[in-house]
Design a protein around this nucleic acid. Structure first.
Length: 325
DNA sequence: AAGGTGATCAACCGCCTGAAT
DNA sequence: AATTCAGGCGGTTGATCACCT
């Protein structure tokens, strides 16, 4: 509507801020607060528009800004939140104290987005880029998580997990090759296959892992497998669960961002009831988790679409791909 | 050493929303 | 009800730097 850009006035400086300008802005805000941003430049003796001053303050000069590299925990938080909220940088920033929306946005565009793309996932939907398989992990995850958690033979389960992980890695590489220009397919496929070994289990983004029972927590075989999965160094579902409460409001606002989440009847006291609706199949639901079995939650469920080794088991009729010597 | 290229990130731009008039 | 204003948001740009050839 009838609103002219605030920086249209001629003669106002643009571009990088000088230390002197920063100093003026900081001193003015420390003394008087920012008040009206529009009026601030004149009062502070700055030849800038109010908008520029606000941006400089909120994105750079604010004393509570945390600078430096993002931690693994922060990275995990951004990934989890982005899966739910999409490009709502300001909403994401509210869950990362000291980080600005601009910084998070830049970090996403320069690091995380590329990482997901490299690994064959759509950075916007957080799903495998091959639509054929996009809904399978949801279903298989739900089918297998219960068994995986309850199965008393974790040694066997771990071995099975590992074998299936290798198969998934082959699947992923195979699909990546299919998506490439024909000229490079053969060479790339061969290179990728050569690169896969049982010690390099997956080349897919982070896998949401169920919380192992205490008896397995120190099992070296299991840990070796977990460690071999990209992003597994990050806090797992425990961290995801810890976000749950603060996320509730955002998730409600986000609504059915991906059409996969429904809220339980009592969101305050009960966990999210994940409802997976892989189009065009009818919805499949899993029971809500209890207080003690917090291995899957609403947002955990949404992120389970990244797929994981065990998630594919039971569906793929092995061997699906060329065997690696 | 010089030029090219890609990555990073501060800053800008245009649009939207809600409050005030 | 229509218009204006201020603040905020997400997308994009461009300056700078590091690395490579």
């Amino acid at each position: 509507m009838g609103r002219s850009p605030c920086c249209d006035e001629s003669g106002l400086k643009k571009g990088p801020w000088t230390p002197e300008e920063d100093d003026k802005l900081i001193k003015h805000i420390q003394k008087h607060g920012h008040g009206s941003w529009r009026a601030l430049p004149k009062l502070a003796g700055l030849n800038r528009c109010g908008k520029s001053c606000r941006l400089r303050w909120t994105n750079y000069l604010r004393p509570d800004i945390k600078r430096g590299k993002f931690s693994q925990e922060e990275e995990q938080t951004i990934l989890s939140l982005h899966a739910i909220l999409g490009n709502k940088w300001s909403a994401i920033a509210t869950h990362l104290p000291g980080r600005t929306d601009n910084e998070i946005k830049n970090f996403w565009n320069t690091h995380l987005k590329k990482k997901l793309i490299q690994m064959g996932f759509d950075p916007m939907t957080h799903r495998p880029r091959t639509e054929i398989f996009s809904s399978l992990p949801h279903l298989i995850a739900l089918a297998n998580l219960k068994e995986l958690i309850e199965n008393p033979s974790w040694e066997d389960q771990a071995m099975r997990f590992q074998n299936e992980a290798v198969q998934l890695a082959r699947l992923n590489q195979y699909l990546q090759c299919l998506l490439q220009p024909q000229a490079s397919v053969e060479a790339t496929f061969q290179n990728n296959l050569n690169a896969i070994s049982p010690n390099m289990v997956l080349n897919t983004p982070y896998l949401e892992l169920p919380t192992p029972p205490p008896s397995l927590a120190n099992n070296t075989n299991f840990q070796a497998i977990i460690d071999s999965i990209p992003f597994s160094h990050m806090p797992d579902l425990q961290a995801t669960c810890s976000l749950q409460t603060s996320l509730n409001r955002d998730m409600v606002q986000a609504g059915s961002h991906f059409g996969v989440l429904n809220q339980g009847e009592n969101s305050h006291s009960s966990p999210w009831l994940p409802t997976i609706s892989p189009s065009p199949s009818p919805a499949a639901t899993v029971p809500p988790m209890t207080e003690t079995s917090n291995t899957i939650t609403g947002d955990a469920c949404s992120t389970s679409s990244y797929g994981g080794a065990q998630l594919w088991s039971g569906l793929l009729d092995y061997p699906l791909f060329p065997e690696i010597a």
